[in-house]
Write a protein that binds this DNA or RNA. Structure first.
Lengths: 335, 335
DNA sequence: ATGAAAGCGCTAACAT
DNA sequence: ATGTTAGCGCTTTCAT
């Protein structure tokens, strides 16, 4: 493979001149630029980013660590990250922690070895060990989707508490009094915040005693199993709130298997849905989080930190979420 | 950040000894190993892969370039790639070409700059320019999912022709005679091969004159629009074959909007479905391709090429696909 | 079993 | 507007 030196010799200039042409830095006469560019093309020269990064201490690479890349919610977020990164000629490495702290740590190590310039992290849990490790390696970190405490970093998320509150108020407005919530782990902020919103709505409407929350994981199985449990109790709910899309699918499947009509017998609401391209008949009433925007904004913030363009106090951005009403939530026809 | 030199000094050894410990190469006495490892931990030393790659000409990095990462079919394939790569301590960079040749070329350039050791490529079209470029940069390439010609590389795909043939034979066995096919672009092998299987089944059953193929893209819209066209013709089909999952969703949506019952009035079959975690009521009769296995096998092959463990003739692996029968294909109740 | 020297390809720093 | 020198952090090669 040709190197800068090969190009330089052929073009009759010094290596640094080739470097300047390629990077569009410093002053270069038009004539020299054209000559160098011609040789680059002629030899099929491709700059070596390893050497470049080693010398310049900049790899122009970011990493996005999410907990579940199979969830279209995170796929969309990834798209926002990629678009913002690409606009600044940065590349993104995608990692999937599967909600496992061990995997998260492992990836953090790998990313540090690769000298990424920054990491966008959806923290797998409340533990900030990974974040501290990255920071100690001079890698900028922005927390995405979830809150973290005990560490000074920027964060971008959407308003889970408010979204949950409004969703539950909507149900209450439809006459529902026994609303069960099925959520994710206890140590994940989105899970906890959505419960807080649910609780606030209930209490505000004098239904505080009816609170019933099942903590599980953000997977279909949790939705399915806890729905079965909830529907076999003496006091059955008339509405179920799933804390994410996979849980919602599990809820709806369980109700279908129990031959319970949605929303005739039981209403279902959730956070996040699936893209229309994967859905034949969208009908879930849900909170739509601005996943793409979150990814984009977080990335822009991260890039500004990296470039030093922004070095002010740590930002905690909370974007508003929107309720999309479809058919899965109806009036309470029960008791 | 500490470097090998820092570790070496602290441990009272030469840098190369630290290198040997980290890479588990050469002979190291137990005592030295332990001393070095202790210092590595103490200083929080993280090896710099840029320097390593620059010197060793190996980055232990692969790339997977797919045409549409939002399609769960490719997500599953990516999983197979990641697992196989991880097992050999390789990292994977994911790229999405959006079926665009320009984007594919752009990524190829980026990957060459990053000195990846190998690329798993789902070719966006019949053009082998990208592949030739990668090969000319000494990067091993394995073609995934789709055939390419005019270039000597390994390829791993599943048997589209056979899958399509069996799917259409199934429909014919159910009494269908007017079967419309909606497929992807004309210059993509999976699209073409599935048409070939469809055609063979029709001809074999004396239905060759009934062939009707709509070429579009592997997206929902193609399924939707061509179904509308097909159902407003004088001679309406009693079954529709979508060449992938997104097309199938479009077909089913169009039929629903036209108030045509599936499978009562029209049967629908396709290639690929969506994971159960995203589906409330799976009902598509479809060809399931071994996406995970394809990813895994292709990666193992690529790694063997990279290591030089395998340097025989170029492999063209074609894995069998399986028909999953659900409810979307029923007997022909029409004329 | 360990080390010394050299260099991978590039660009920062400092000339001119 | 262009060039010289040096060195980023690591591992290859060749000793001992």
């Amino acid at each position: 493979m040709p190197t800068v030196l090969d190009v330089a010799k052929r073009a009759g200039v010094a290596p640094i001149t080739v470097s300047r042409v390629i990077n569009n830095s410093g002053y270069i006469s038009q004539a020299t630029r054209e000559r160098v560019e011609a040789v680059v093309k002629e030899l099929g020269y491709v700059p070596n980013t390893l050497a470049r990064g080693l010398r310049s201490k900049r790899t122009k690479t970011l990493a996005l660590v999410v907990t579940d890349i199979t969830n279209p919610y995170f796929t969309l977020m990834a798209r926002g990250v990629e678009d913002a990164a690409g606009a600044s000629n940065y590349t993104v490495i995608y990692c999937n922690s599967d909600e496992s702290e061990a995997k998260e740590e492992n990836y953090a190590n790998l990313l540090a070895q690769r000298q990424v310039d920054g990491v966008l992290l959806v923290p797998s849990c409340g533990n900030v060990k990974t974040i501290k490790f990255l920071l100690s390696n001079n890698i900028n970190v922005v927390a995405l989707d979830r809150r973290v405490s005990g560490v000074k970093i920027d964060s971008v998320r959407s308003d889970s508490e408010d979204g949950a509150y409004r969703l539950v108020k909507l149900l209450i407005g439809l006459g529902h009094k026994r609303i069960v919530m099925i959520t994710g782990p206890k140590d994940v902020s989105t899970s906890v915040d959505r419960v807080a919103g649910y609780r606030r709505a209930l209490i505000e409407s004098g239904l505080g005693d009816n609170e019933q929350v099942y903590y599980g994981a953000f997977v279909q199985q949790s939705g399915y199993e806890f729905t079965q449990q909830a529907m076999t109790q003496s006091s059955k709910p008339t509405a179920i709130f799933g804390a994410n899309n996979f849980i919602a699918i599990g809820i709806i499947k369980a109700l279908r298997d129990l031959r319970i009509n949605v929303p005739g017998d039981v209403s279902v609401v959730a956070f996040d849905d699936f893209p229309e391209s994967m859905l034949v008949a969208p009908f879930l009433t849900f909170v739509e989080q601005p996943a793409y925007e979150m990814g984009r904004i977080a990335t822009e913030l991260l890039l500004k930190r990296i470039s030093g363009e922004f070095n002010g106090g740590y930002q905690k951005l909370v974007l508003p979420a929107e309720i999309i009403e479809r058919g899965s939530a109806g009036p309470n026809n029960g008791d």
